[in-house]
């Protein structure tokens, strides 16, 4: 069956990766990318629409294009200013759900990329969170609150619209050759932060498995709520040892107040919690739907650091692509174009 799919956050890392992955799938008839900024990777056949950050024009696009799948990759889980975080995660999701739930909507499946940040990280936590395990305490950080609020709206939507498939994937901390996060920045430097006396267990998911998991549920029409993380957990000290990062212990008592030292590192508040208590999730529910992981947690760490070592030797490959609206439109819509521009 031919699908018409809309991908949010097309200008971001994940949106770009997902669009590129969907383009090679012939059952994806029409691929639309939405983003606040110009995309940073080239698309072969996907069309790009520039929108404001909170996606207020989304309902018009959905109505006009009659998409049946919305792939919401634009829930930010790492590094954004507080205000932008709320606009993007909460208001953006609200507009998206409003568009999808409008009467006569063509949308049949919504896939949301969320994060295991929603479980938090505290001393009271069980060692392993299953999808229905509640948090041990109220959300403490803005990013957690924003994600919980967005997920709450998605849950309400799926109750109100039983005929629409809703999938929420909660990804563990992602490591991979290309993605940059607070954790990856810390690990690619010679020294990294730790909290004195704590050596938490962390679980990672490989970049490639994130894309594959999203494709798996999108193509297969798999509804539900799933944790996504590689098998196994590693102590932070072991992660650092694999990456050749020497850990500098920060005081366990208010580490963020040690400004001069903490500023050396990339330490958002939710990462400070994680470096104290870690987090583990159960992934059997997704595996039961037929998904197979390519990498374990340890495998993700190794793949990440191998790419970092290569970059240290040859430098970062300069981005050769700049999005130019007119050029892209020409290739897609001009009657003169009869072949693929890249082949």
């Amino acid at each position: 069956m031919a699908h018409r799919v809309l991908v949010t956050g097309a200008d971001t890392f994940w949106g770009g990766r997902m669009i590129q992955a969907l383009e090679s799938d012939p059952s994806m008839d029409v691929i639309l990318g939405m983003g606040a900024h110009a995309p940073s990777v080239p698309f072969e056949r996907a069309e790009f629409v520039q929108a404001d950050q909170n996606y207020s024009i989304l309902h018009r696009i959905v109505r006009a294009t009659q998409v049946d799948i919305i792939l919401h990759t634009f829930l930010v889980t790492d590094g954004l200013s507080q205000r932008a975080l709320h606009e993007t995660n909460v208001i953006g999701t609200m507009n998206l759900l409003a568009a999808a739930g409008a009467s006569g909507s063509s949308v049949r499946h919504i896939v949301v990329k969320s994060s295991t940040l929603v479980y938090g990280s505290s001393a009271r936590d069980p060692s392993t969170f299953e999808e229905n395990t509640p948090r041990s305490g109220p959300a403490t950080h803005r990013i957690e609150r924003a994600l919980l609020e967005a997920e709450g709206m998605v849950r309400d939507f799926s109750e109100d619209n039983p005929s629409t498939l809703v999938t929420v994937l909660r990804f563990a901390n992602v490591l991979g050759p290309h993605l940059t996060t607070a954790i990856s920045r810390n690990l690619s430097r010679p020294i990294g932060p730790s909290i004195f006396g704590f050596d938490p267990l962390l679980q990672f998911v490989a970049e490639g498995d994130v894309v594959r998991a999203l494709l798996h549920v999108t193509r297969g029409g798999v509804p539900g709520l799933y944790n996504v993380a590689g098998a196994g957990r590693l102590p932070w000290s072991e992660v650092a040892a694999i990456c050749g990062t020497r850990l500098v212990p920060l005081s366990p008592y208010s580490p963020l107040k040690l400004r001069p030292l903490a500023r050396l590192f990339d330490l958002p508040p939710e990462l400070v919690d994680l470096l104290r208590y870690g987090r583990g999730v159960d992934t059997r529910r997704l595996t039961a739907t037929g998904f197979e992981y390519e990498a374990t947690s340890a495998g993700a760490v190794h793949a990440f650091i191998r790419a970092v070592r290569l970059r240290r030797s040859v430098g970062r490959a300069p981005s050769s692509y700049t999005y130019e609206h007119d050029v892209e439109q020409f290739f897609r819509h001009s009657p003169s174009v009869v072949g693929s521009p890249d082949r």
Binding site: S127, G232, P235, G280, H302
Partner: peptide
């Protein structure tokens, strides 16, 4: 049901419980 896929990639033998 889960043979250890981490053989050779781990430096410590810390299990999922720590």
């Amino acid at each position: 049901d889960s043979p250890d896929p981490d053989v050779g990639t781990r430096l410590s033998d810390v299990d999922e419980w720590g």
